[in-house]
Design a protein around this nucleic acid. Structure first.
Length: 300
DNA sequence: CGTCCCACCTGATTGC
DNA sequence: TGCAATCAGGTGGGAC
């Protein structure tokens, strides 16, 4: 489910629930595909770290980690951690507890079905759970992902994502992204190396709002059309974030996905239904292997 | 290098 | 009802 608005909603919800807390222990599943960094490294970096901030870059949830200054971390000492910390240079070792290097980050990509849940330990662990972080408050942060397209990793350098942020990119930069590209504009919008965060739903919705056919070559769109497209994209994403804020809170509680489908789509998943603007039936085609929905009358 | 296409997975829905 | 085929909001790698 997760495109930029969903990921932002989840990140904000998780931030509110867990920021400032220290990670006491980490459990990971044995499904190697889920882990882009070795599970042992993830556990090593996370254990003892403090969650300073949870935010979003593109479609990735970024957890900024810090090292708590305090004395007592865990009741059970961990020899591996102790060894690693000795080797670190910064700060007086006596006041540092184990944890990541400065500016370390925990990166979570939800893939198609990934969920981040904040649960009590008593809550039954759902099927397809791949990571559990136990926090000092006693709560657990759990990563659950049935389809296993999601990915977990740690980074030591600040993660900036593969492309530009759709919400903040300036007009000239936006126009330049598409210059000379022969690929359909729909495919270009999905290319995370250009804009990161835009997925199938919001690409279709933005193109409809801008009145542009999804098969148009990106490089042949006029300045005027690209100006409209940027405005439409930002408007659609912002509106979805606003709606998501209230309806997706369940993502981080117990039961996941409830509610986000209330979103007011104009074309996505509305094949054959009347266009909300002109009543013409919405058409579905395939571009780059992705289903694509548009109004043949409103979009040219 | 840019673009296309498929594999990677499980589960929900559709169709026979 | 049962079961197989189809489809799903994402991405990375190999083919062209």
């Amino acid at each position: 489910m997760p495109e930029l608005p969903e990921v932002e909603t989840v990140a904000n919800g998780v931030h509110q629930r867990v920021h400032g807390q220290t990670i006491l222990s980490v459990w990971t599943s044995n499904k190697p595909q889920t882990f882009k960094s070795p599970p042992a490294e993830i556990a090593d970096v996370l254990t003892g770290a403090r969650i300073d901030r949870v935010h979003r870059v593109g479609k990735t949830i970024v957890v900024d980690l810090g090292r708590p200054l305090s004395k007592k971390l865990s009741s059970r000492p961990n020899p591996e951690q102790a060894k690693r910390v000795e080797g670190e240079v910064e700060g007086p070792a006596s006041t540092q507890t184990p944890g990541p290097a400065k500016n370390a980050q925990f990166l979570i990509h939800l893939g198609m079905t990934g969920r981040l849940l904040v649960s009590t330990p008593e809550t039954e662990v759902p099927p397809h759970t791949h990571a559990i972080l136990t926090l000092r408050s006693g709560k657990q942060l759990r990563f659950v992902d049935a389809r296993r397209f999601g990915r977990l990793s740690v980074a030591t350098e600040t993660y900036t994502g593969p492309g530009k942020e759709p919400l903040t990119i300036g007009l000239e930069d936006f126009i330049a992204l598409f210059h000379g590209r022969r690929t359909p504009i729909k495919a270009a919008l999905l290319n995370q190396a250009l804009l990161h965060g835009v997925g199938n739903i919001y690409a279709d919705e933005a193109l409809h709002h801008a009145g542009i056919r999804p098969r148009r070559h990106a490089g042949r769109l006029t300045r005027d059309e690209l100006t409209k497209l940027r405005t439409a994209l930002q408007k659609v994403l912002k509106k979805a974030i606003k709606l998501g804020g209230s309806s997706v809170s369940d993502y981080v509680d117990a039961d996941g996905v409830a509610g986000f489908f209330q979103l007011h789509h104009y074309v996505y998943s509305r094949t054959g239904e009347p266009c909300r603007t002109c009543k013409t039936p919405i058409e579905r085609i395939v571009i780059g292997g992705r289903s694509t929905h548009f109004c043949p009358k409103c979009q040219r």
